[in-house]
Write a protein that binds this DNA or RNA. Sequence first.
DNA 1: TCGTGCGCTTGATATCTGTCAAGTGCGTGC
DNA 2: GCACGCACTTGACAGATATCAAGCGCACGA
Lengths: 237, 237
Amino acid sequence: MARLGMPESVYPEIRELHLFSEVADDQFMTLMRGAYVQNFPPRIELITEGDSSDFLHIVLSGSVDLFSTWNGRETSMATVWPVSTFILAATIKDAPYLMSARTLEKSRIALVPSQDVRIAFDADQCFARAIVSELAQSYRSVIKAQKNLKLRSSLERLANYLLQQQKHSDDVTEFDLRFEKRRLASVLGMTPENLSRAFKALRPYGVSIEGNHIEISDLEDLKRFAKPDPLIDDPET
Amino acid sequence: MARLGMPESVYPEIRELHLFSEVADDQFMTLMRGAYVQNFPPRIELITEGDSSDFLHIVLSGSVDLFSTWNGRETSMATVWPVSTFILAATIKDAPYLMSARTLEKSRIALVPSQDVRIAFDADQCFARAIVSELAQSYRSVIKAQKNLKLRSSLERLANYLLQQQKHSDDVTEFDLRFEKRRLASVLGMTPENLSRAFKALRPYGVSIEGNHIEISDLEDLKRFAKPDPLIDDPET
DNA sequence: TCGTGCGCTTGATATCTGTCAAGTGCGTGC
DNA sequence: GCACGCACTTGACAGATATCAAGCGCACGA
């Protein structure tokens, strides 16, 4: 878990983030100078819900699971892939984290002091606009997730998840699940046992699974069942 | 449904909104000049999910239900009470609405052209900061709602909802439900029939209900069951 | 190569939640 | 005052989902 200053080599990747792409050069450099990079092994808890938010986190490589707990139960809320940020809202509000975060694999995380982010926000209008855009985007993502949960059964959620992944995989009809099934179950709001049964229940619609490998033989058939909706399933809108 | 320019009499109430309280006077006047106020009867659909967002809406009186539909099903996502705004995220992103909105009762709604909001955002740093704060707040609210849905049973959601309302009612142990039970059921993600049964199931914990009137005889007992958590139930954090 | 562990699957069962149908109670309007 | 509508309740039932226990299979390390 070596703590390093921010090496300049990562600047370009961070720059490519929508959040930072339009920031003035001097602001960007100030932000980066206060930041640092850490390497984490798998399964390390980066932040714990309820703690106060001192850093904006940026996943440079690996992946991070955002999860929440209550009364001994736990659920996966989202997964963060490179290159993107998380807990922006808590950073902005200077409020306690609502979710915990843990690495899923070996990961490189950049940490930008929350205070620097707030200062840059005041100094650079482009950065402010980017933050607003990012927050609005995040808000809309969660609303979609909530619609997904409240309006669909677990089987329908799985079917639409598969269609989403299929689209994400260059529209081929075969692809691999991006993470282990127990986590997928938690993300979809169901138990691992139920996920197993759900995969079998989708066989009549042309879904076959072997290990992590999915094959969809009749996309239209699956779509007829899943009824994907851009206002729930499209990441962009 | 008379369409009026914005009467100056409503300026003070809007000014009191966190979103507008710090805006420079000239910016505020510009925003208000482009805006107007409409009176709506109950049960009128103000916006429809999927439509493009032309106005930021501000509820001045009455109340508004935000709901979503999919595949013939419908669910209440949130209720907006005076004085507050809704669909800020869609306005900012210039993206289609993810939720529909309908008046629950006779309501006065102010409509501010989205474009004016975006212009004011660029011109006034205080306004920009307020928008960021509002969006971050909204984001956190939805995250809490999602945790509520994924981590709790419907009975637990109801118990915590009652505790929340009790706190909201000056901490007295008797209060009235703020809206009809069928909507409450939808908000809590259950059917009206199940809500009925859930109320009966809470009787052993000291909850009695008669019509819209709730009485909690043993607050501590109910809390022991509900296990309220600030990271799910507190509106502020 | 052979355990061993762990994630996954499967079946039996319990619990939760939704659906359908009927009934109750209250308010509105004729 | 009475009939009607509508929200709500209740009961019986069905379907969805979780739980528990056992077994499978693959990857890893001794």
